[in-house]
């Protein structure tokens, strides 16, 4: 008896109509979190989940990037939004800065 071949399903791929080359994007600011030897790893994950409304796996990914690489770029935003996020991270006691992209 032959096994029934499962139908092959291809992912839907559509070209994003609104995407622009990087040099045509509005100027943005990177929000960066820096490693320090004091904040607990679970606490950093918790903060990322609260501030950015991220899932736990995504928050853990960035926490580990901070821990292992010394920093993680968390998001790219307008200046006002980037300042807002950096201020929130400071309220939680994390080391965070913003820089122009």
């Amino acid at each position: 008896m032959m096994a029934t071949a499962a139908p092959m399903v291809l992912p839907d791929i559509e070209r994003e109509q609104d995407s622009k080359p990087r040099d045509e994007l509005e100027p943005g600011y990177l929000v960066i979190c820096w490693d320090d030897p004091v904040n607990l790893m679970d606490y950093v994950t918790h903060v990322f989940q609260r501030v950015f409304r991220w899932t736990k796996p995504k928050a853990e990914y960035h926490m580990l990037q901070v821990h292992e690489q010394g920093r993680s770029v968390l998001t790219r935003e307008s200046m006002e939004r980037a300042e807002h996020y950096v201020h929130q991270l400071h309220q939680y006691g994390l080391k965070a800065t913003m820089e122009r992209d």
């Binding site: 201020h87 080391k95 913003m98």
Partner: peptide, 28 residues
């Protein structure tokens, strides 16, 4: 945590950075 521990942008324009830093410290 003492004021001044957190830095907004240590590599930016010094004059603007100082003004932004003061605002940050006041807000915190």
């Amino acid at each position: 945590i003492p004021p001044g521990y957190h830095q907004l942008n240590p590599t930016g324009d010094p004059a603007q950075t100082a003004a932004d830093q003061r605002l940050l410290e006041e807000a915190l």
